[in-house]
Design a protein around this nucleic acid. Structure first.
Lengths: 191, 191
DNA sequence: CCAAATAGTTACTGACCGGTCACGTCCAAG
DNA sequence: CTTGGACGTGACCGGTCAGTAACTATTTGG
């Protein structure tokens, strides 16, 4: 891998490298020295931009959250006025992501690793997950589904489970049928 | 907490203490010294019983797996000859567990933390999860459900997601509706 | 009751962790 | 040309990590 020295400034390289390493190897398993080295910089520079490892972790989560919000906007822009098409586009995206990434959700994994109850990441994760659920509920409402909140909850949990299952059981396990399950559930809610 | 000096032998105290601490605080976050101390023993004794931390981790997973198999046997024994009642009993158990434990599945969490591809825990987790799925499929078949495997996969993922969601979003999130979702899905498969 | 197994105590190793510091370099803007 | 800010280097700190050794105390079973 290695982000190299190509990207613009050290700060961005550090964040993208940290996100990648945290995601693939785990947050506690990756040291500051490794991040700095892979990012093509050094520990001193890293600590000029982030006051602590926790600070860097938070920045990684914020970065991921921003990416997610952007993705939601893209989905809404894909076929404006057609909620159902948006919902289907969301499902397609999410299924593709599930197929390509075997390490699950960055937020969920962070919640597994960062167990101190007062860790700022915990509240952040709770908030972004809730934001996701609310956005999905809005999408379901726009799609004209009656019990939109319940569908949003069901799809949230199904996706969460598929990503977790993919990570622990592998791609041949129950998660391989995620798309069919989600489609069937959406269909059953439309009636 | 503290397992104390009450339980019989150090080995069992170490395993149960390790399981508890690993589960609540995370595997990488808990050191050997802490485990030994909370178990009311010492590091030397711990290393007389387990050749390494990884060895202890594996024993914890084996112990949890044995507990699960025992639970499955209890469910089957609860109402023999009545597959559907067994399935409902399973759901009740699982929902209760979901309500009481906010730290998710021990196997899934271990898979998040132990990222080295050749770590023995990874294969073990894959195997026990597959065993679970197969057992659940058998239960669905006994309950007379037509597409038993698909229902088993769906319920597996739904449960996986509910536990993950409960851990990251909290008990007020989507996971609060797990029971209703599962019941509705089972019902829809019965027709 | 005695021997052997088991457990406890203390101290240690070497590696690595997150984090700091003093100092040297480079480049761009005034 | 010079000054100041961003960056790089390498050494270092105290703490903690997994794991070991030497020695003593306790339990247990024949």
């Amino acid at each position: 891998m290695q982000s190299g020295r190509t990207s613009p400034r050290p700060r961005e390289r550090i964040v993208s490298t940290a996100r990648d390493l945290f995601h693939r190897r785990g947050i506690r398993a990756v040291g500051i020295d490794t991040i700095a080295e892979v990012a093509g910089t050094n520990k001193t520079t890293l600590y000029r931009h982030f006051i602590s490892k926790d600070d860097l972790i938070m920045e990684c989560l914020r970065s991921r959250a921003e990416e997610a919000r952007q993705s939601w906007a893209e989905i809404e822009a894909s076929s404006p006025e057609d909620g159902l098409a948006q919902l289907r586009f969301w499902l397609a995206r999410v299924a593709k992501r599930l197929a390509n990434d075997c390490r699950g959700c960055e937020f969920t994994n962070a919640a597994v690793e960062l167990t101190e109850e007062d860790h700022p990441a915990r509240k952040f994760i709770e908030d972004i997950k809730t934001e996701y659920r609310d956005w999905l509920a809005k999408l379901c409402r726009k799609a004209g589904i009656a019990r939109a909140e319940l569908l949003a909850d069901t799809l949230s949990i199904l996706l969460e489970g598929a990503r977790a299952s993919r990570q622990s059981v592998g791609p041949e396990g129950p998660s391989s049928r995620f798309l069919a399950m989600a489609e069937a559930i959406i269909e059953s809610f439309r009636r």
